[in-house]
Amino acid sequence: MNWERIIDELLAAARSEPANGRVPYAFERRILARLAGAPPADAWALWGRALWRSAALCLAVMTASGLWWIWPAPHLSRPLDFSQEFQHAVFAQASQVDVVE
């Protein structure tokens, strides 16, 4: 089936349709009344909104990094803490000295 040809026919038919720019009755008045009633854009409000958004983003990043820190990958064994590592280093040297003697 020649779909391209059929699509071309469809689009040609759609192009032949004149654009419908009819404006509903008193639409301009409604728009202007709405604009006049709308509060003016407040720079402080915009700034505050941006701050709240960035605070939410920071909270999300903090939560994600916290979770990542709390839950280690299951295939990795928990690493030794500093005191255990220090102890191992000291006794390893001592045991080496014993072996030499």
């Binding site: 020649n2 040809r5 059929i6 026919e9 689009l11 040609a12 038919a13 759609a14 349709e17």
Partner: peptide, 26 residues
């Protein structure tokens, strides 16, 4: 319109209103 054009694509210009409805649907 679709049946007709599938059978013979050169008949696409007939019944443009139906074609317009179909293109809006697409």
């Amino acid at each position: 319109w679709l049946e007709r054009v599938m059978a013979d694509p050169s008949t696409g210009s007939a019944d443009a209103a139906a074609a317009r409805q179909l293109v809006h649907r697409l």
